[in-house]
Write a protein that binds this DNA or RNA. Structure first.
Lengths: 182, 182
DNA sequence: GTCTATATACAGATAGAC
DNA sequence: GTCTATCTGTATATAGAC
């Protein structure tokens, strides 16, 4: 946990980058090692198996998400606005970790699906007191899921059909308005 | 196109079933053949490669989606309500095809991502005239994306955290209300 | 049109040098 | 702690019998 070796982080960054850019099929041990600038043997010194590597990625995502949840609680605009807004921060560590973990989940990795569902439940707990009812809660969560899903769908390059800047502001405003508590 | 051989359909059903239940990693030619009740050789008579099989799945999804779009146009409740509602029809052919194609897209299959984006654009064209502005359009599409994403995340069994019945009615009502055109 | 048997390729993992 | 070389398992695809 505390002060993880730099090489491990470098490998996890490489793993995420390949998952995000090229998908799970391309994320072989050899490709990850190459991207991280080490050999396959060197990689396997830090992570004894592919499964261990996957587990480390999932753990990193969970840590970042829990930190995000703590931050959102303190946001001045209110958790709903902050939550929707952070769902579209392409390139930020948490966003990358979630997108990568989603790709992993879709290949059949149960630990990845479980972790994503767990984090989603925590977000739900955070948002629930700030919306009027269950339908409103579902709406907020589903918009966030949709933003992540679209992020995950964009393999290769960046742009995609996601709302940005003024467009995102309008979406956030609409979601907040439609779900605000009594 | 017209009246495809039964064996091909049976194989595609098997492919979808494995993608949905166990993820892309488990969807090997051998597993697909077994699920379809044929041998690997028999499967390869109908689909000359894994790539051909993937292309056929994507084509089937596109056909079903275009038919769905045609139906939605005629729905009495209005396209927005019908669109959100059909996004959660677990077990229906279109829903299965989209979920399966999503799993494929996450492994790095570019044709799958492109097809999904193309269908999403068509849905956007259908919904746009019925909502008040761009933010509203994004909201409707993102809720639908979120519903599919959650479907895709539930590997193994059915339930999941998706809204059902009365809960779904309330969500649909909220989305329609929040996005209705002037 | 469907099968079995086999060829080829490559991913994950091990062994041991440096 | 990182490397190269190699082993093993498994996935796709081919060949050819039935």
């Amino acid at each position: 946990m505390s002060r993880p070796p730099l090489a491990r982080e470098k490998v996890l960054d490489a793993y995420e980058a390949i998952l995000i850019a090229d998908g799970a099929r391309a994320a072989t041990m050899e490709a990850i090692a190459r991207e991280a600038g080490v050999s396959k043997g060197g990689l396997l010194y830090h992570f004894e198996s592919k499964e261990a590597l996957e587990a480390a990625l999932i753990a990193r995502m969970t840590d970042l998400a829990l930190a995000d949840i703590a931050e959102l609680s303190a946001d001045a605009d209110g958790p709903v606005a902050a939550f929707v807004r952070t769902s579209v921060m392409t390139g930020h560590p948490l966003d990358r970790a979630i997108t990568a973990t989603s790709k992993l989940a879709q290949t059949g990795n149960v630990a990845a699906s479980d972790a994503l569902r767990g984090i989603r439940d925590r977000w739900a707990d955070l948002v629930r007191p700030h919306v009027r009812d269950d339908a409103a809660l579902q709406l907020v969560l589903l918009v966030s899921d949709g933003l992540y899903f679209n992020n995950a769908l964009v393999t290769g390059v960046l742009p995609g059909p996601l709302p940005r800047d003024a467009e995102l502001d309008a979406l956030v405003e609409l979601v907040v308005e439609a779900t605000r508590g009594a």
